[in-house]
């Protein structure tokens, strides 16, 4: 997996490229943890280039959400593809992590 962290107006975008499986999940947690430690509290995870996510990836997402909130911030997800959407829905995680259509929508009304 590859990650890019870019500061935007009012939030930080984290782009995750690749497969969010047992191999990629710990890397996502590390990337989000690094961003939080660097003072980026309001995060948007851009999943547009995340071609696959399984329950390991989903567990990492939940862990990242908890870590962001514990740090006094938040994590939102955006630009979700068909496969990721399927997993979010099957597990009802879309109730706590609502996908936003585009990255810039995530904190529009914050």
């Amino acid at each position: 997996m590859k990650f890019a962290v870019e500061e935007r107006a009012g939030y930080t975008e984290v782009t995750a490229q690749g497969r969010l499986n047992m191999v990629g999940a710990p890397l996502l947690k590390a990337a989000v943890s690094d961003a939080l430690e660097s003072g980026h509290k309001l995060l948007v995870l851009n999943l547009g280039e995340t071609e696959f996510m399984d329950s390991s990836g989903l567990g990492a997402l939940v862990g990242c959400l908890k870590a962001a909130r514990q740090a006094g911030g938040d994590l939102r997800i955006a630009n979700v593809g068909e496969q990721v959407q399927m997993v979010l829905k099957l597990t009802s995680i879309d109730r706590i992590l609502t996908p936003y259509p585009a990255v810039e929508d995530a904190y529009r009304n914050a």
Binding site: K66, T91, S92
Partner: peptide, 15 residues
């Protein structure tokens, strides 16, 4: 059985 949304593991075989 699918665990609740707060769980970070335990969904694999349920899925």
């Amino acid at each position: 059985e699918m665990p609740g949304p707060e769980a970070e593991a335990g969904r694999g075989l349920a899925l």
